[in-house]
């Protein structure tokens, strides 16, 4: 579980996060949504420890990040997995090399043990046959799956995903969404996903936080988002005719 308590973050005169408090629950897919410039990426980078908030605190299962020694912060970071928007795979390494990288850097496992672990996670993301290929030789969806495999290879407690299905076709996007949800439940990890994709919200949004102008405007589940009257949420989530109809059908069904 990650507790975010009243965090503020500025860059020069720009006050990006203006006091956000929330809880990201373990074993659930927690989604951060909001328009571009609402502070989603900055919040995610604060959660990752890449940015330090000027005020407030982030607590990871009882450990306040700002109060940890730099060694403990590094150790905590090794409990975090990250799936970047562009996958961020290392070009010069094969798929297996990319997934093995955290194991080589941070464990003392023998080569054969590392290979076994890599095979397990590649099998989990259905990529066993691509282990010898380079990132440039595989599709965008496969790259995302490699990024997920690399993020979970160290058995992290926290998984962060920045726009995990951007640039993917709808079918592959659903596969990636479901894969993240299954992994979250299977490994019982705290997953935080930064997304613009309303399909993801409807599919896997067990907890949704809506940001607007650096503030938390709304939070709830994928069921609650259908029922909310919050003007900012409805104008963002139901901006397309399709989602308006989906919402209408959902509400009619419930009534």
């Amino acid at each position: 579980m990650i507790e975010v308590n009243n965090i503020h973050k500025s860059f020069g005169d720009a006050h990006i996060l203006k006091g956000i408090s929330t809880v990201f629950e373990t074993g659930k897919t927690n989604l951060i949504i909001g328009q571009s410039g609402s502070g989603k990426t900055v919040l995610l980078k604060c959660l990752l420890g890449l940015f330090s908030p000027e005020e407030g605190s982030i607590v990871y299962d009882g450990q306040k990040y700002s109060e940890l020694s730099s060694k403990d912060q590094r150790n905590l970071r090794q409990d975090m997995g990250m799936v970047f928007q562009g996958s961020a795979l290392f070009d010069g390494m094969t798929v297996a090399g990319n997934v093995m990288f955290p194991l080589e850097m941070f464990t003392k496992l023998a080569k054969s043990e590392m290979e076994d672990r890599v095979n397990i996670v590649l099998k989990r993301v259905n990529l066993v046959d691509a282990d010898h290929k380079y990132p440039s030789e595989i599709s965008g969806g496969m790259q995302k799956r490699v990024a997920i495999a690399r993020a979970i290879v160290m058995n992290p407690q926290y998984l962060f995903c920045d726009e995990p299905n951007s640039g993917l076709d709808p079918k592959t996007a659903i596969i990636i969404d479901n894969l993240i949800k299954e992994i979250t439940e299977e490994y019982n990890i705290t997953t935080v996903i930064n997304t613009h994709d309303m399909n993801s919200v409807m599919e896997i949004g067990e907890k949704i936080i809506f940001l607007k102008d650096g503030l938390k405007e709304w939070e709830g589940t994928k069921h609650e988002i259908f029922k909310t009257d919050n003007q900012a949420v409805t104008s963002f989530v139901y901006s397309s005719e399709l989602f308006k109809k989906v919402r209408q059908m959902y509400l009619e069904e419930r009534n």
Partner: peptide, 13 residues
């Protein structure tokens, strides 16, 4: 540009 450096930093490298 491709966030590979961010990936290293997130891992604690």
């Amino acid at each position: 540009v491709t966030e590979q450096i961010d990936a290293l930093e997130v891992m604690g490298v």
